[in-house]
Simulated assay, not measured.
Amino acid sequence: MTATKSISIRAVKTLQAGVPVYAFFLPGAKVLEIADICRLERTKDGLEGFQRDAIQKHITAMVDYLNSGDVLFPNAILLALSPRATFSRSRGPAPDGLIPSGDAGVLKLPHLSDGSKCAWIVDGQQRSTALARAVDGNLSVPVIAFVSDDLQVHREQFILVNKARPLPKRMVDELLPEVDARHLPADMAMRQIPSALVDRLDADPASPFHGLIRRTSTSKDPLRVITDSALVRTLQRQIHQPLGALASFRSLDGGSTDPNAMYEVIVQFWTEVKRAFPEAWGLPPEQSRLMHSAGIAAIGALMDHLMPRAAQHAVPAEFFGRTLRDMAPNCAWTRGRWSDMDRAWNQVESTAKDIRNLSDQLIRLSQSSHLRQVA
C-alpha cells in the first residue's frame, strides 16, 4: 500500500506517555474522508471494532442545527491516528513568555492507494456523520488525535471517554474483556472478569450457554435468548460477595484470581440446571422464566446456597444434579404456579422483590430435597 496524496494541515504536537498527540482544525466534511468508524460486531475471528450503531435521531437533530445558519460547534472529535502520518515542526523563534506545551507545525495525513483511511474515530461518530451531511461542509471543527494503530488502545480510550456518559452498560461490558485491566478504573476492572466469563460461556461448545447469550454485537440473533447483563450481574455478585459461589477463587491478598476454576464450577452447575429442566432450557424468556433475567439471578442465588455443601462431595456435579432433579417437579418455569410465592410462572418479573422471593422459594425447595436425601 502506498500513499497517493496527502492532506496538509496546521497542527500543534505534544507528547503524553510518550505518545504523539495533535490538536488541529478540519473542515467538518473532511473528517469522514480521513477517518473510519469501526462498528462493534462479532465475527468468527472474534470481537471487531468498538463503536455503537449510529443514532439517526441524534444525527438528524445535529444536521438541522448545522443547517440553521451561523453556528458554534466547538466540541472536539477524538481520533486515533495512523503512524503513517508525519509532522514537520515550524521554524522560527518562540515568543517571550510562551508556555512550552507543544510544537506548532504541519501535519500530513496520507491517503492510501487502496482507499483505506489514516485515522479511526474514537469519540464523535455522530457529530462526524452530521458534519458530513450538513449543507456547509467547510465549518472548521476541532480535532484531537493520538497516534496509535492498536485496536486495544482505541477501545480503552473509547471506554474511558464515555465513562461519564450514558454509554450502554451492556456494550461496555462486552468490550471490557478486550481491554487491559491495568488501564481501567477500579469499578470497571471489577466488571471485566464476569464479562470475560460470559464471553467464554457463549463461545465454548461444551458450555450449556453456547450460542444462547445475547450481547450488543449479536442482539439481532433470535436464537440468543439470554440477556448478557443478567449473567454478568449474577457472576459479579458471586465473585465479589463474601458468600458468593465463586468468591473462594478471588484473590484477597494480591495473589492471582483464578477465572479458569470459576469457569469450571459455573459450567458444572449450569450443565446440571440444563439437565434438570430440559423443557425450559433454550426458550425465549416469554416462554420460560428460567431463561428470564429473574430466573438467572434466582438460580445464581441457589448456586451460592448449594456451593458449601457441594464442596463436601467428591463429585460436586452429582450433588448439584441430584438436588436440582429432586426440585424440578415443584418448579414452575414454563407453566403452573410457584406455591410459596403464589404467583403464576409468567407473573415473575425482574424486580428486586420477585427475584428475592423466587430465590427464597428455590432455596427452600433445595432444603426440602436435602432433608429427603438424608432421611
Score class of each variant (00 low, 15 high):
His292Val: 05
His292Gly: 04
His292Arg: 05
Ala294Val: 12
Ala297Leu: 03
Ala298Asp: 09
Ala298Gln: 08
Ala298Ile: 06
Ala298Ser: 15
Ile299Glu: 00
Gly300Ser: 05
Ala301His: 11
Ala301Arg: 12
Ala301Ser: 11
Met303Lys: 03
Met303Phe: 13
Asp304Glu: 05
His305Cys: 08
Leu306Val: 07
Pro308Gln: 09
Pro308Met: 06
Ala311Asn: 10
Ala311Trp: 01
Ala311Phe: 00
Gln312Gly: 06
Ala314Asn: 09
Ala314Phe: 08
Pro316Ile: 00
Ala317Trp: 00
Glu318Asn: 14
Glu318Trp: 05
Phe319Gln: 00
Phe319Glu: 00
Gly321Thr: 01
Gly321Met: 00
Arg322Thr: 07
Arg322Asp: 09
Thr323Ser: 09
Thr323Met: 06
Thr323Ile: 13
Leu324Met: 02
Arg325Leu: 06
Asp326Gln: 15
Asp326His: 14
Met327Pro: 08
Ala328Glu: 05
Ala328Leu: 01
Pro329Leu: 03
Asn330Met: 10
Asn330His: 14
Cys331Glu: 01
Ala332Ile: 01
Trp333Phe: 15
Trp333Cys: 03
Thr334Ile: 13
Arg335Phe: 10
Arg337Asp: 12
Asp340Trp: 00
Met341Phe: 02
Asp342Asn: 15
Arg343Gln: 14
Ala344Glu: 15
Trp345Phe: 15
Asn346Cys: 10
Asn346Glu: 10
Asn346Thr: 14
Gln347Ile: 04
Gln347Cys: 12
Glu349Thr: 15
Ser350His: 12
Ser350Phe: 09
Ser350Glu: 07
Thr351Asp: 10
Ala352Met: 09
Ala352Thr: 14
Ala352Ile: 13
Ala352Gly: 05
Ala352Phe: 03
Lys353Gly: 11
Asp354Asn: 15
Asp354Met: 10
Asn357Val: 07
Asn357Gln: 13
Asn357Gly: 02
Leu358Tyr: 11
Gln361Asn: 11
Gln361Glu: 15
Leu362Tyr: 04
Leu362Gly: 08
Ile363Phe: 07
Arg364Ala: 06
Leu365Ile: 01
Leu365Lys: 06
Ser366Gln: 01
Ser368Gln: 14
Ser369Trp: 03
His370Gln: 08
His370Arg: 14
Gln373Glu: 10
Gln373Ile: 03
